[in-house]
Amino acid sequence: MIIYFSGTGNTKWAASVLSERTGEKLINITDMPGTEISYKLEAGERLGFCFPVHGWRPPLIVRNFIKKLSVINAEGHYCYVVCTTGDNVGETIDIFEKDLKRIGVHLDSSFSLIMPESYVGLPFMDVDTPKKEKQKKEKAAEDLEHFADMIIERKKGIKELIVGRWPKINSRIIGSFFVKYLITDKPFHVTEDLCIKCGKCAKACPVDNIIWSKDSMPKWKHNGSCLSCFACYHHCPKHAIEYGSRTRNKGQYFFDKNEEL
């Protein structure tokens, strides 16, 4: 079983590759509504988690999912996590491991996969250049094959992570600021003369936070569900969506699984 969350597609690609290599089913967190979720693992089944790093932490949707998750027979089953990031993970895995311990799940191995950058919500952050994007994808494909080999062999105690130079500062201080002030849909707005009312932004939103109907412009719900993953921004074919003034003149990115690596 591979439980995953993906915003702009990087993690969905990684989880899909692992599913093909291990033969284990994929479960998308956004398809799992409800207050309590219970799973019973089959004999020999691995338990995998895949998610992107948000503000040097696991995404809130992942942490909230773990709180309501019950794995009936987790003991003795191999458990691993693969997190995707544009740079480094800070203390993301430490935080996630503590979340798992609270529900009685032991994490055996952890991996971080460098992927093209998609977070554009701060003035100094933008997507990668096409050249760097290509290089990251090629390297990620190689690394993921290596990770898959270890996962198939159920290697324990593996921590192939790029934590960065200041993991505590990034995850605790900046990460706290990120959660408190930057996870919000309030700055999102549409440039009306560019919007073609196609609804691609609404379809791309992983938490169904955008109201759209045919021939209408999108509107955000402002109900606290937004993850600031920027899937709506990146999927707009006319670059009509902005996040305050912070995304002005910035690039767009989402993973195209049909694209050749």
Rank of each mutant, 00 (worst) to 15 (best):
S6V: 06
S6Y: 02
K12F: 08
W13S: 02
W13Y: 12
R21E: 15
K25V: 06
L26N: 05
L26I: 05
L26S: 06
D31V: 03
M32W: 05
M32V: 15
T35A: 15
T35C: 07
S38R: 15
Y39P: 04
R46S: 14
L47D: 05
L47V: 10
R63Q: 15
R63I: 14
K68V: 13
I72L: 14
E75Q: 11
C83D: 08
G86I: 10
E97V: 05
K98F: 01
F111N: 06
Y119T: 01
V120H: 03
P123F: 11
E133R: 05
Q135L: 02
Q135P: 00
K136G: 00
E138N: 07
E138H: 01
D149T: 12
M150N: 05
G164A: 03
G164Q: 02
G164H: 06
G164V: 04
K168C: 01
N170W: 08
I183E: 14
I183N: 04
V190S: 10
K197T: 12
V207E: 03
I211H: 12
S213A: 13
M217Y: 04
H222F: 14
C226W: 05
C229R: 03
C232Q: 06
H239V: 07
A240S: 12
S245W: 07
S245T: 12
R248K: 12
Q252W: 00
F255L: 10
D256L: 06
N258F: 04
